[in-house]
Simulated scan of single mutants.
Amino acid sequence: MLSFIRFSIIAVCSLLLSPSPAQDATAGQTVYMQVCFACHQPTGLGLPGMFPPLANSDWVTAAKSDRLIRIVLHGITGPIQLNGQPFNSPAPIMPAQGTLSDDQIANVLTYVRSNFGNKAGAVTAAEVKAIREAEKARTTMWTQAELEKISVN
């Protein structure tokens, strides 16, 4: 009986202390406004011909966030297609942001996946940590062709 009570107390405390997706998105908005908004704009619409939109993006709303995590960690260089439309930029489309913590990346991706017309699930720090570890030897930006080999379903 005592072990059941102890288990119940631990479970309740962990639920109370774990950030909710809303809290993650709020923390993510802070990261977005510090790191991402200059290129992707406060609206998530990006800058045509320079920086791609995050709003209503098929890349952002994929079932799994594995590709997005990789893009944030190591960057992506073009050309790429967004929502079936070609997007060419003379500069790298997204520089690496691997200096962000796993929590910061999870939070900002949760924010992006639940805003700007996007309706996709939260990203966890554990997911980011696993991909960071799996890709720790990578030193170059991703290309669309490489990322398309990674399942998002």
Rank of each mutant, 00 (worst) to 15 (best):
F116Y: 15
G84V: 10
I93V: 15
Q97S: 08
I131T: 07
T139Q: 10
T124N: 10
L47W: 12
Q23F: 08
S65A: 15
A126E: 14
S65Q: 06
A137P: 05
E127T: 01
L47E: 14
N107R: 09
A38V: 15
P92F: 02
R6S: 12
P79L: 09
K136S: 15
V112W: 02
P42F: 13
A63S: 14
F7I: 05
L82Y: 04
P53L: 13
N153T: 13
P92T: 12
G75Y: 09
G46I: 09
L17I: 09
C13E: 08
P95F: 11
A120G: 10
T124C: 12
I93L: 15
Y111M: 05
T61S: 13
L100C: 05
P92N: 10
N107P: 06
P79I: 05
I150G: 00
M141Y: 02
D58W: 00
A38R: 14
C36G: 04
V152N: 03
I131Y: 02
L47K: 14
L68K: 02
V152P: 01
K64C: 06
N115L: 07
V35Y: 06
V35H: 08
R70H: 11
T140W: 03
S57G: 07
Q144I: 02
R132M: 10
S3V: 06
R6Y: 11
T26L: 09
T43S: 15
P19V: 07
R138P: 00
K136M: 12
V72A: 00
W59C: 05
K119A: 15
I131L: 14
A63L: 12
K136P: 03
S14D: 06
M33V: 06
Q97W: 12
V12W: 09
K119V: 05
L54S: 03
D103N: 13
G28F: 01
P79G: 08
C39V: 12
P95Q: 14
V72P: 01
M141T: 10
A63T: 13
G121C: 09
F37P: 03
